[in-house]
Nucleic acid binder design. Structure first.
Lengths: 148, 148
DNA sequence: GGTATTCTCGACCATTCGAGTCAACATTGT
DNA sequence: ACAATGTTGACTCGAATGGTCGAGAATACC
């Protein structure tokens, strides 16, 4: 598994914040409930996202979290690298240790896969994820009408 | 990290067997030495490769391991899926649990990446890996001549 | 038949990582 | 003052990773 729950939950949280952009701070508890994330665990993910400048948080009553950039300025690659650290699919691509690569034998295949993967992730913005979710919701609503 | 040492070591071992095809059984100790794999650990990987029909093993003096198919009949995808189990990059792609996917929000991106990855891995054969290694060796030999 | 050689299989073990939980503390609106 | 909220670090618990080890089985060779 390349992505842990950090990358999954963290992106879910960011989608939630993007969907409620302009409505003031969104509280941890709301995000956790809507996106089915353990509240205490979400803390750590928000902390990381804050450290890397993706969100701003305010304390006190009516406090919460909001995006620090617009959704189309945030790409999935940067989000995931913030949450997960490196996304390298195998150890020998982590640092370019030529000794390790020399004996590995399949590193060149994975280097290509890694490059393609990063390119794809860089091309998807948070705005795209929100848009995709909205479309999905519309589809489900339409399907529901037919079922009724 | 998508690949553990199993996928790394196991493929190294297969490359070694492919390189010594037609020379009779290759012993565990030789593979381990040449490819820098802990000998006792290699046992488990060879066992898995045997179970899945990639190699045949013979016991006794002058015993060892050899390929059960030709190198061009074996693709990297099948090798790695034998050694690692599923290569799914995130949990919600593992089984197609529609409930999990509905809330995930980035599954569609990863589904595309996963498909591309599998296609690439399926297109690379063990013969390709050996050929690539031989080329690499020739390059290094040429470079060495210039250094001298 | 005995012995050396090699693979085979399962049990065991140490360390790290993933996924959380929790309590104490800081900040701020009312 | 106090209640609501975020912030932080310490802690836990189970599973996975990356091995090691020993008893046993097969087989070639003398």
């Amino acid at each position: 598994m390349l992505l842990s729950t950090k990358g999954d939950y963290g992106v879910r949280a960011m989608i939630d914040l993007a969907k409620h952009e302009g409505e003031g701070p969104v509280q941890r508890a709301e995000i956790a409930r809507r996106r089915q994330i353990p509240e205490a665990y979400l803390d750590h993910l928000l902390a990381q996202l804050r450290r890397d400048g993706f969100i701003r948080s305010t304390r006190g009553p009516a406090g919460g979290h909001q995006l620090a950039k617009t959704p189309d300025e945030i790409c999935l690659l940067h989000l995931l690298e913030s949450l997960e650290g490196s996304l390298a699919p195998m150890q020998c691509l982590e640092n370019d240790d030529p000794q390790e690569e020399a004996i590995c034998g399949q590193d060149w295949v994975w280097q290509e896969i890694y490059d393609d993967m990063r390119a794809k992730l860089a091309s998807v913005s948070l705005a795209d994820l929100v848009e995709h979710e909205r479309e999905h919701e519309r589809e489900r609503a339409t399907a529901a009408r037919y079922v009724i």
